[in-house]
């Protein structure tokens, strides 16, 4: 099946079986390896990407549904995104395997709630598991990205 998508702002056409997981297409056909496979069943969020602005698990999306979709992976997050800087400032990436998915989930969260409450952060990121940080550095990074102040 041939599917046309816009990935990180670029039109691409992919030829692959329609039931292929978007995750495999991104990592295999397109070489975008920022999306990781942690569980393969939509529980951990390591494979999270944005599809039409919404955070989704790419391991649960068949290519057949992606015709015309606008997809953003970690490779396509704009360099001036405050989240990239705040994750670095707050040491929010430890082993780093959850980080791309976490940043995309946080991107979607901040798009919906530019000044999120702690509760909104907690619920907004609850589809992304991190085993290293205990989430403290991540809360701080998202807060900093929304307010410009790490202790805001």
């Amino acid at each position: 099946m041939s599917v046309k998508m816009q990935i990180n702002g670029q039109e691409v056409q992919v030829q692959a079986p329609p039931a292929s997981r978007l995750l495999d297409v991104l990592r295999g056909e397109l070489g975008l390896k920022g999306a990781k496979e942690g569980c393969g069943e939509g529980e951990c969020g390591a494979c999270a990407v944005l599809v039409n602005g919404q955070v989704v698990n790419s391991c649960l999306i068949p290519l057949g549904q992606m015709d015309g979709a606008k997809i953003v992976t970690i490779e396509g997050v704009p360099g001036d995104s405050p989240l990239l800087q705040s994750f670095h400032d707050c040491a929010a990436a430890q082993c780093g395997i959850c980080t791309p998915g976490m940043i995309l989930a946080a991107t979607a969260l901040l798009a919906e709630h530019p000044q999120p409450t702690m509760d909104e952060i907690r619920w907004g990121l609850s589809g992304n598991l991190c085993r290293c940080t205990g989430y403290g550095r991540i809360y701080e990074a998202v807060t900093q990205a929304s307010t410009g102040d790490a202790h805001g």
């Binding site: 390896k33 999306a35 992976t73 970690i74 490779e75 670095h88 400032d89 990436a93 780093g96």
Partner: peptide
Amino acid sequence: KRVDGLSKIYGKALY
């Protein structure tokens, strides 16, 4: 800053 921070944040670190 963590020396491994940016490569992980940009999704470029190779696992």
